[in-house]
Design a protein around this nucleic acid. Structure first.
Lengths: 240, 240
DNA sequence: CGCCTTTGTGAACAACGTTAAGATTTGCTT
DNA sequence: AAGCAAATCTTAACGTTGTTCACAAAGGCG
């Protein structure tokens, strides 16, 4: 089977071998020599396909972002348009992380964050953000009446929750056996429940809301209202 | 000044040197030899104080968790008892991450997650979880009526949001210049606003809630209600 | 003072990322 | 079809890393 001196498609073979290793090891531990070994080539061979080890990881990250966007768009087509968009985005994001944990970890590897060092990866990351932003910005997502500030609040909240939940689940920090606190056995069930719970915030600005609700919420907390107002005044979550 | 052959307190000096380096580099990149160099000792010296490099990082993690717990308890004393506990925990967690990003990153370093390999670190991590769990479990946190399932939901949601927000802010992924979406310039303001926004979920189960609210929420989504019910039935967020 | 324990040094080893120079294959050009 | 340049792979090497080992210096205690 060892066909020829040349490999055929070594680049993809290296990516696959990397992912096989990354399933059990962290991205920081990945050894380029080991990847080459698993692919059946010499230690120097990968350098004809990637500038260095980080670029190999960046390519995996790009692969991951492309896959994420594909799956998000896929999921968006299989649902009633304009309903529960925020919840659906969160769920899609978390499900991707659970389905492709190795990709997810590489996508958020700290050493790949510099936009100038890895422009293609950065472009894909921005693409996801833009896509999610556009979907969540649709007026019917929240019910309609929603000014810029409120929308920013919700998006920061949703993005934080989705990302945090994904990280905790992928890291195994939210498992039923050893508690931070009791949680469901099935990670997907956790995601569903959290997303559904968060939806109650969404409903605050839904059209069915009464004016009485609105007032009660705003004057609810002792310092909460004050701090929020203060933050709004200083620089708040207004458009950049 | 180079006093003697012996260092005095090399252990702490190594920890300090590490943190100095970690301020600009990631935990995975930290070189033990460089730490030793900065501390002015040979490459083998650290092995008299730490079993290996990971144990050095684990010690920093322990330091971080202890600091976090101290700051959380500190903040808890300076506020009206039993009010907005959930929001205060979130804010405290995020503020710690912003104030001590190096510690925060090490505390969540992927290679330090194994409880058996780093039992002391794991104990401190559990301690934080337990402390936060106890605080958020206080009945007056939410207003009173709250069954086990609802409490788990809220805690999973709050923990996810706090952790996700902290990670995004520490990573610089929520900055005003390059948008995922517009966000405040001051990270602390973002944290305040997100925490305040999340508080609306809290208010769902507050005593001032009317029965009409409750019903409307549960029958709100098209599939959301269904999925939640399904999750509840299967294994849900009940006590472990 | 003598002696054991602690804490430092220096040299060594294997593994790693990366580069350089040379071999082999591919494919285009004529 | 021949030949030649580009792409791909190999072997060898360099410097750095984590870690270990044997040994030296300092501290503490009888």
């Amino acid at each position: 089977m060892k066909a020829s001196y040349h490999h055929g498609d070594l680049r993809q073979a290296l990516l696959d071998a990397s992912l096989r290793i990354l399933a059990s090891r962290d991205a920081g531990d990945l050894s380029l020599r080991e990847v080459a070994r698993q692919a059946g080539v010499s230690a120097a061979a990968p350098y004809h396909h990637f500038d260095n080890k980080l670029e190999l990881l960046a390519a995996i990250g790009v692969e991951g972002f492309a896959l994420l966007e594909k799956e998000l768009r896929e999921a968006a087509r299989h649902e009633a348009p304009g309903r529960a968009t925020l919840e659906s985005c969160i769920l899609g994001y978390v499900r991707f992380a659970l389905a492709h944990p190795s990709h997810f970890r590489v996508m958020h590897h700290p050493e790949l964050r510099d936009p100038e060092a890895h422009p293609e990866l950065h472009a894909h990351r921005q693409g996801i953000w833009q896509y999610l932003g556009e979907r969540m910005a649709q007026p019917e997502s929240f019910g309609g009446a929603l000014d810029e500030t409120e929308r920013s609040n919700l998006m920061a909240l949703a993005w934080s929750t989705a990302h945090g939940l994904a990280r905790l689940l992928v890291a195994g920090a939210l498992c039923p056996s050893e508690p931070p606190f009791p949680v469901a056995a099935d990670p997907d069930a956790v995601a569903q429940t959290v997303a559904a719970t968060l939806r109650q915030v969404d409903s605050l600005t839904a059209p069915s809301e009464t004016e009485g609700d609105r007032v009660r919420h705003e004057s609810d907390g002792l310092n909460a209202g004050h701090e929020l107002a203060e933050a709004d005044q200083e620089n708040s979550l207004t458009l950049l």
